[in-house]
């Protein structure tokens, strides 16, 4: 294993090099310890936040913004998207309400990031 990547834990954007095997990862190129964690995590299980929208029944607000409650594995993003894309909101919700529990068994819930008034 020998991979280079840009650390995004802070604006400095160090160019990291990660070498070694999964149980013994070596990170170099960092300028602060946060870079080590970032480099390791990116190899072992890169996590990403997914934010998107869901369809609603409303004409005035046909989409409601949503996100997952926690970051999920980068590789599962599109899988989650296809489930979310088939969801239609048909009730009133407020920001923070759970719309789908445990999306694709990732452990993350789909939550509304804005309020939605089904009558409106």
């Amino acid at each position: 294993m020998n991979r280079t990547m840009t650390c995004i834990a802070c604006p400095r954007g160090c160019l990291l090099t990660v070498t070694g095997s999964n149980d013994n990862l070596e990170v170099s190129g960092y300028q602060c310890p946060r870079g080590i964690d970032y480099g390791r995590q990116e190899i072992l299980l890169p996590l990403r936040m997914l934010t998107t929208t869901v369809r609603t029944m409303s004409v005035e607000s046909p989409r409601l913004p949503v996100r997952l409650s926690t970051e999920v594995s980068k590789t599962r993003i599109f899988e989650c998207m296809s489930v979310i894309n088939h969801f239609t909101l048909n009730r009133s919700v407020k920001a923070g309400d759970v719309l789908i529990e445990d999306v694709c068994a990732t452990g993350a819930d789909l939550i509304a990031t804005g309020g939605f008034d089904n009558e409106g």
């Binding site: 929208t53 369809r55 989409r63 599109f78 998207m81 296809s82 894309n85 088939h86």
Partner: peptide, 8 residues
Amino acid sequence: CETKEGAF
């Protein structure tokens, strides 16, 4: 087209 439909 609309988002969500036949997205992929």
